[in-house]
Every structure is written in C-alpha cells, then in structure tokens.
C-alpha cells in the first residue's frame, strides 16, 4: 500500500429516527487502500453510519470529511460523484432488469445523436462493458442479459458488488456482502474485496461474521448502541476481544474492576 493517508473522516455523527437514536456519537476514519470492517450487534447503527457516508441519510450533527475537506451529501448521487459506491444490505437491484441494465442503472450510455438525444440507449456498448466487467472480476453469470430475479442469491450479490467496484473510484462500501451467501460464494466475495483493495480502493465492510472480518480486514471499528467504541488494527486484537467489545462485556469488566 503506497499511500496510507486518511481519505475519509466521520466525526461525532448523530442520527435519530423519531425517538430512536440510531447513532449517538459515531467516529470513523478510513485510509487509502485499506479494508476497514465495521462490526457491532444488531441495531448498533452500522447500516445507518454507512448510509450517511453514501448519502442516503443526512446526519443530524457531526462532520464528514473527504481528503480533509468537509463535505455534505444530500443524496446518493453526490456521493457517487465523489467516487463513493455502495452495496446496500437490502440489495439495491432492480430485479426485473437484466444484469447489464443493473450495472448501468442511472448511468446509462446513449447512442450518438440524434437518437441518443431522445434517450435511446446504447444497449450493445453497455452489454459489452458489463461482460468485460464480469470477466475482469471473474463473476460467473451465464449471460449479462439474464434478469436479476432469475439469478441465484450469490450471483445477485455479485452483480451488486460488481456495480460498486466498476464505478467506485475511491471508496467502496459493502453492507454485509456475504450475509446471504453460501460458503463458496462468500469466499468469492472476499477474494473480490482483496482484489479491489489491491487496485488501490478503500473498502468499508460491515459484517457479522467475525472470522471473515479477521480474514480480510486491515482495521476494525466496533459500534455499540450508536457509539464508536474503538478502532484497532486486526493484527493487534483477537476475535474474543472484539466480541467482548461488541456486547459490552469488556466495558462491564472494566467497570467491575474499577469499582
């Protein structure tokens, strides 16, 4: 990793939904070329945090900085313009469209004018690029013009991941990318993540699967009830320690010691 500078900082972010305080005080820092895992119990605020980074939600308080510059993201489009792509936990695919159409959703390529000016799509070009992308990422789907609804869970996830990687220029965010997958398919996604890191992108990965986190992540941030507990290098910690922090057992132990 040539450049380990900080690319993204999240500071003191808060977010509430009605009476639910999803995030109370979340801090997060992402470096170039790292895989950074966010872990925490159900409802800890992981998805909320990444949705703030990807522009789906807006923070009630706190600051986001990209390359040290404060940024405000009003919608996912603005995040994507800055090179931030996301694979959402609730798969954000249009099931009735084919894989190629999903890869290009919202970024369609058009025929040359005059037809293109009327919105006519260059389906051949998109199809070709989709095929190239699938090949490059070694994603085996038999045909990119198969409707997504007809694909297996793993293939659907692969399409979502491929889209993020194909367009992400700086940061790729993945919310539980392997949650719905079998062992073999999970392994493929993890390979994909490493591959993408080696291409120099920074990756944020949310996961409940700690062995998986320990297999690919460079650093781990633990969230609990909307707060950042800590961030540490994977090599400096252990699975047991992380579980302890996620559930609050460690804190409780410390408190018990202190009293």
């Amino acid at each position: 990793m040539p450049d380990n500078g900080v690319i993204l900082e999240v500071e003191d972010v808060q977010k509430r939904f009605g009476r639910v305080e999803a995030l109370r005080d979340a801090d997060f820092e992402l470096r170039n070329g790292e895989v950074h895992a966010i872990v925490g119990d159900n409802g800890a605020g992981k998805s909320t945090l990444i949705k703030i980074i990807s522009g789906v939600y807006q923070a009630d308080a706190g600051e986001l900085r990209l390359d040290g510059e404060p940024i405000v993201l009003h919608n996912p489009r603005e995040a994507r313009q800055l090179g931030i792509e996301t694979v959402y936990q609730d798969l954000a695919l249009a099931d009735d469209l084919d894989a190629a159409a999903n890869l290009f959703l919202g970024r369609e390529e058009y025929l040359p004018p005059p037809l293109g000016s009327l919105g006519f799509l260059d389906r051949k070009a998109m199809r070709q690029r989709a095929e190239e992308e699938m090949r490059r990422l070694k994603i085996g789907i038999s045909s990119v013009d198969q409707r997504v609804v007809e694909l297996s869970g793993g293939q659907r996830q692969a399409v979502a991941v491929a889209r993020a990687i194909a367009w992400g220029r700086r940061i790729v965010i993945m919310d539980e990318p392997t949650a719905a997958l079998g062992v073999r398919e999970s392994a493929m996604v993890l390979e994909l993540i490493k591959e993408v890191r080696n291409q120099g992108l920074a990756i944020i990965m949310v996961s409940h699967n700690l062995p998986e986190v320990f297999a690919v992540a460079d650093r781990i941030t633990v969230l609990r009830i909307g707060r950042t507990i800590t961030t540490m290098a994977t090599k400096d910690t252990s699975l047991e320690a992380v579980v302890g922090m996620m559930t609050g057992a460690v804190e409780a132990a410390l408190r018990a010691e202190g009293s």
Partner: peptide, 10 residues
C-alpha cells in the same frame, strides 16, 4: 421493480 434502488441509483 424497485423504486428505492432506482432512487439510490440516482
């Protein structure tokens, strides 16, 4: 197919 996905796709 998925209005939320469409929204997120811009």
């Amino acid at each position: 197919s998925n209005d939320e996905a469409s929204r997120r796709a811009g």
